[in-house]
Design a protein around this nucleic acid. Structure first.
Lengths: 369, 369
DNA sequence: CTGTTAGCGCTTTCAA
DNA sequence: TTGAAAGCGCTAACAG
C-alpha cells in the first residue's frame, strides 16, 4: 500500500526531480506528463501521475513554474483604503465581482492589495513586492501608491480616475452628467437649499462641512467631478445654495452622522445630494430619526443605484457598475495580450424614484398664486 | 537627464545583475541594498538605489525572490461559488475583511480563488496552480475542491466546516445553538406553522421545498446543523410543523422568491426562520408585497446579524463574523509559523428585535378565553 | 563591508 | 518519444 520511501530533497518538499528519479525517467518527461500530455505515451503518463500521487507530489510548484514562464497568472487589485472597508462597500464588491468574472476564464486570479492599515508599515510594500502580471487600481487618490504601481511597469488599468496617465489605461464613468441631472432635478422641484454629502475629497478623509478652499482643491476625481457638477447647476439658479459636507468613510453610519450634523446646522435645507447610495441610506435613516418625512420634508438622491436601492425606492444616479468591472477586466486582458486598450467613459443617468418631491412651501418669496 | 542605455537582459526586463554590472559591484551588494540596508554603507546604498531607479529597475523580482525564499506571502482564499456571488454576501465580505486585517501586518495578502464559473474549465486548476503559502477554505462543501486543497499539503484553515480533518484546522460557529434559540423563540410565541428558508443543502444548489430524504442528507454543514436544530425544537412541540425550503443563492431576490412560493403553498405559515439576514431581507420584502404585516401576520428571524440588520429591526441570530475572520487569520498565522492552531467554535445567540411577535389567532384550537 | 557561488524547482530548446 | 543542459532572477552562506 505505502510506496517506497521517496528520496526527499533537502527542502523537505517533493520535487519533480524526485518523481523522475523514482521512475528512472528524465525530469523533462515528468514535466511533460503535466504540461504536454501529447508529448508522451498515455500509459507512461499514467504511470508518472500515479507515482507522483503515491509519493505525495501534488504537481509542479506554481512559483517555480511562474518564474520560468515569466507569468504568475495573478492580477493585483490596489485599493487605497483598508480592505475591510473595500469589502464593506456594495458597489466596490459588485465591481470586483465583475472584474473577477471577466478575467477568470483566462485563468487569472485576483490578489487583493490593500492600503496599509498600520501607519508604521510601508504602504508601498504590497505593491512593490507582489508577484503579479498586471494591476487594477481602484480609486487610488494617493499618488505615491499609484506611482509605485506605475513604477512596476506592468499593464495597469486605472479605475474612475480617467483619463489615465500614458502608462495606464483609464476606465471610469461620466461622473458629471449624472451629478448634473441630480442637481437639476432638485432645482426643478423648487429646492433652493441643497446639502451635498461628498465622498472623500482627498487622502486625508476629513468629516464635516467643506470650505470654499477645500472645495477648490479636491483630489479624489469622482468627488471633484460630481461636486463641480452640483455646484455649476446650483450656481445657475438664483437664490439657490449648496452645502457640501465631506464623509470620511462611505458607510451608512457616516452618512447618518453627517446628515444629522448638516440638518442641524442648516435647517433650511430641503434636499440632500449624496455621492453614494450607501451614504444616502444613512441620510434616510437620519431623516427618520429627526422625524423629517421623506420626501415631503426632505428629498434624498443617491449615486450608484445599488441593487438594493430599488427596494428603498431611492432616487439615485445609476452607473453601470458591473459593466465597468467587465470592461476593466477586458482592458487588462487586452494589455496582457499585447493589444492596445482604449480609455473608456461609461454613461450615468438619473433614476427618479420615490425619495424626491417638490420642495415644501417656505417663508422665502415664491411665485405661486 | 536620461541614463546611459542599460545592458538589457535577453528577457527585456532589467535585472539585479544589470544594475550590479552598471555600477561595477556584485549582485550580492545590490541585493543587500534592498534587503539588508545594514550590510553596506548608506552612501553606496543610495548610489545603488539611484542607479537602479535611473535604469528603470523597480526592485527585486517578487517571483524570483519568493522562489528563492520558499514563501510567496500570499494566502489563497477558496470559495466554492463564483466570486461575484462571494462579494455579494455582506457577511462574507465582512469576514474576508477581518481576515485581511488580521494577516496584513504580517505582510500577507489574499488571493481570491473562486469555484469555476465556466463548467468546461477545470474547477481545481486555480487551487492546484496558485502560488500560496496557505489556504483559507470558506464553505467548501464541494469535497473535490477541498481534497485538492489538502493535496497541496499547505497550512489550511477550514471555515464553518469544523471539525476539520486532521490536515486542516476547523474554525466555525455554534450553528445549532443560535438556530435552536430562534426556533424556540417562535414556538414560545405560539407559532405552529413555521417556514425555514435554508441556505444550500449541497453543491447542487436547488431551489424549492426540501423533501424528507434531502433533509436527511444535507451536505453543507451550517445548513445541516441549523436545520436539524430547527427540526428538533419543532418536533418537541405538539402540533408544530416545519416547512423547509432551499434557497439556491444567498440573495434577497432568492429569499423573496422562495418566501412567496412558500407562503402561497402554505398560507397557514405564520413565521419564517431564515438561515441568513440576506434571505430574511427577501422574506421581509415578500411579506410587504403580499400585504402581510410583519410581525403581526408574519414573524421573520434571520441569521448572521449583519450591521445593517439593526436598522431593519430584524430579529436574528448573532454570530461574531468579524471575530471569526480574525481568529481564522490568526490560526493561519500560527500554522505558518509552525505553531499549532486550535479548533475553535464561536458562540451564537438570538437577538430579539421587532420582526417577531405572538402568532396571530388562528382557527385551530387555542386555550385563550 | 563586499564578492563568489550554489542553488530554489521548473520549463524548454535541442539532440538523440 | 525521451533526455541533457541551460537558465528564469534572486538570496544566503561563506570567504575575503
Amino acid at each position: 500500500m505505502t510506496p517506497a520511501k521517496p528520496v526527499r530533497s533537502p527542502s523537505g518538499r517533493i520535487t519533480l526531480r524526485e518523481v523522475a528519479r523514482e521512475l528512472g525517467v528524465s525530469v523533462a518527461t515528468v514535466s511533460n506528463a503535466y504540461n504536454r500530455p501529447d508529448q508522451l505515451s498515455a500509459e507512461l503518463r499514467e504511470k508518472i501521475l500515479d507515482t507522483a500521487r503515491a509519493l505525495g507530489y501534488s504537481g509542479p510548484d506554481p512559483l517555480a513554474r511562474s518564474l520560468r514562464r515569466g507569468r504568475s497568472g495573478v492580477i493585483g487589485v490596489v485599493y487605497d483604503a483598508p480592505l475591510e472597508y473595500a469589502f464593506a462597500d456594495p458597489a466596490a464588491a459588485l465591481f470586483l465581482g465583475s472584474v473577477a468574472h471577466a478575467i477568470q476564464d483566462s485563468g487569472l486570479n485576483l490578489l487583493l492589495l490593500a492600503g496599509a492599515d498600520d501607519p508604521r508599515a510601508d504602504p508601498l510594500a504590497p505593491v512593490v513586492s507582489a508577484s503579479v502580471d498586471g494591476f487594477i487600481v481602484y480609486c487610488a487618490a494617493d499618488s505615491a501608491l499609484l506611482r509605485a504601481v506605475l513604477g512596476r511597469g506592468l499593464p495597469t488599468v486605472l479605475v474612475d480616475q480617467h483619463p489615465g496617465s500614458h502608462d495606464a489605461v483609464g476606465i471610469g464613468i461620466d461622473d458629471a452628467t449624472g451629478a448634473r441631472q441630480a442637481a437639476r432635478h432638485l432645482l426643478d422641484l423648487g429646492h433652493r437649499h441643497i446639502g451635498a454629502l461628498c465622498l472623500e475629497l482627498g487622502p486625508q478623509r476629513l468629516s464635516g462641512p467643506v470650505s470654499a478652499e477645500r472645495e477648490a482643491a479636491v483630489v479624489h476625481r469622482p468627488t471633484a467631478e460630481r461636486l463641480r457638477a452640483y455646484r455649476d447647476e446650483v450656481r445657475a439658479v438664483d437664490g439657490a445654495r449648496l452645502y457640501p459636507t465631506e464623509a470620511a468613510r462611505n458607510t451608512p453610519a457616516e452618512g447618518r452622522a453627517r446628515t444629522l450634523e448638516l440638518l442641524r446646522a442648516q435647517p433650511q435645507v430641503t434636499a440632500v445630494l449624496c455621492m453614494s447610495d450607501v451614504l444616502a441610506q444613512g441620510a434616510l435613516r437620519a431623516a427618520q430619526e429627526l422625524d423629517w418625512p421623506v420626501p415631503q420634508r426632505l428629498s434624498v438622491i443617491g449615486y450608484d443605484d445599488l441593487p438594493s436601492s430599488a427596494a428603498l425606492n431611492l432616487t439615485t444616479v445609476w452607473q453601470p457598475t458591473a459593466d465597468k468591472g467587465r470592461q476593466v477586466g477586458e482592458a487588462l486582458l487586452d494589455l496582457l495580450a499585447g493589444r492596445p486598450a482604449r480609455e473608456l467613459t461609461l454613461p450615468t443617468r438619473l433614476v427618479v424614484r420615490g425619495t424626491t418631491a417638490p420642495a415644501p412651501a417656505s417663508p422665502s418669496p415664491t411665485d405661486s398664486p
